[in-house]
Computed example of a mutant assay.
Amino acid sequence: MPRYKALSAELDPCARQLVERLRQLKDHGELTMRHLAAKTGYSAKSWERYLGGTSLPPREALEALARITGADPVPLLALHEVAADTWDSRSARTAVDPRPATQERELEKGQEQGQGQEPEPVTLIGPTAPPAPAPAPGRIPHIALTAGLAALTVALLAALLLMLRLDGDVTQAAVAAPPSTAAASPSPTYTCRISRVDGSWSAGINKGRNDEIVYGATGADVAEAQCLLRRAGISPGGIDGMFGPLTLRAVKTFQQRSGLAVDGMLGPRSWKALRG
């Protein structure tokens, strides 16, 4: 199996799960980058970016990969839809205005002239304003004092307005605050009651359902899976009905131990193995 580069820590969990699933499908189908390019219509360089987590693959590429590997495209497209939002926001955060090229050239020119020589003045193109008349020598202290008092007055007014605004925000937040957590409804609790029902293991929580659940899911189906994972000797953390990182790691460990596709999703095959 080829070694892939570690994925960026900035990737959203859904985007990370999408890339890992694409890698699994490629490895399971024993496909090379040339095979992917020939069978999907997307270049080998594009697939390197998709599998490296540096570029979000289009929906058509996911459907083509699912078609040639015989996989269900629906989970891939669902992960793609969630990952697209986080991918767009991350791209917007990394956009930075470049430094003007003319300013870079002038700085480099000034450094090359050496110590002791003054750089040539930079001429900026744009509308020019007439020079302000120089104040009379005797009025300079008076003008400086007046400007200082004006700046101090503006700063004090800005600070006062900021304090009034913060005080209003705190009051509004206190009025709009929800009731205390003590009055909120408690989270549901689950108890594992492991038993054999018609030859299959059951925890007595979700009435024997085998619905597909993925990372981020909550409820009785997740709690049922957590109980069965614990029965199999793999700790999913607490029995809290939340498909979090600990439960995801336990699911992948169980799938690897059972010879199943290690995709972190509990589908019909994984449920069958858990209940077997």
Rank of each mutant, 00 (worst) to 15 (best):
P2H: 07
R3T: 12
A6W: 00
A6G: 01
E10T: 10
E10Q: 15
P13M: 09
L18Q: 05
L25P: 00
H28A: 12
M33I: 08
A38V: 13
A44F: 01
A44D: 07
S46P: 11
E48P: 11
T54C: 10
S55I: 03
R59T: 15
R59H: 07
E60L: 12
L62N: 01
E63K: 12
R67L: 14
A71Y: 03
A71R: 01
V74G: 11
V74N: 04
P75W: 02
A84C: 05
D85W: 07
D85I: 15
D88W: 05
R90M: 06
T94I: 04
A95R: 15
D97M: 12
R99A: 11
A101F: 08
E106C: 13
L107I: 12
G110R: 13
E112Y: 07
G116S: 04
E118F: 11
E120A: 13
P121N: 04
L124I: 05
L124E: 08
G126T: 01
P127N: 05
A129R: 13
A129L: 15
P131I: 07
G138V: 12
R139T: 15
I140E: 06
P141N: 12
H142V: 13
A144C: 00
G148W: 09
T153E: 06
T153P: 03
T153A: 14
L156G: 12
A159T: 15
A159G: 10
L162N: 02
R165W: 11
G168F: 08
D169R: 15
A173M: 10
A174I: 01
V175F: 02
A184W: 12
P186T: 13
P188R: 09
T189N: 06
S195W: 06
S195N: 10
V197W: 03
I205A: 07
I205N: 06
G208D: 03
G208V: 03
G208P: 03
R209W: 06
R209L: 09
R209Y: 09
R209V: 00
N210C: 15
D211H: 14
Y215C: 10
A220M: 11
A220N: 15
D221F: 03
A223P: 06
A223T: 04
A223R: 07
A225N: 04
Q226H: 09
L228I: 04
L228V: 03
G233K: 05
I234L: 05
G238S: 14
I239G: 00
D240N: 05
F243S: 14
G244P: 07
P245S: 13
L248D: 12
R249D: 13
A250E: 00
V251Q: 02
F254S: 09
F254P: 02
Q255R: 02
Q255A: 00
R257P: 00
V262C: 03
G264R: 03
L266P: 04
S270Y: 08
R275T: 10
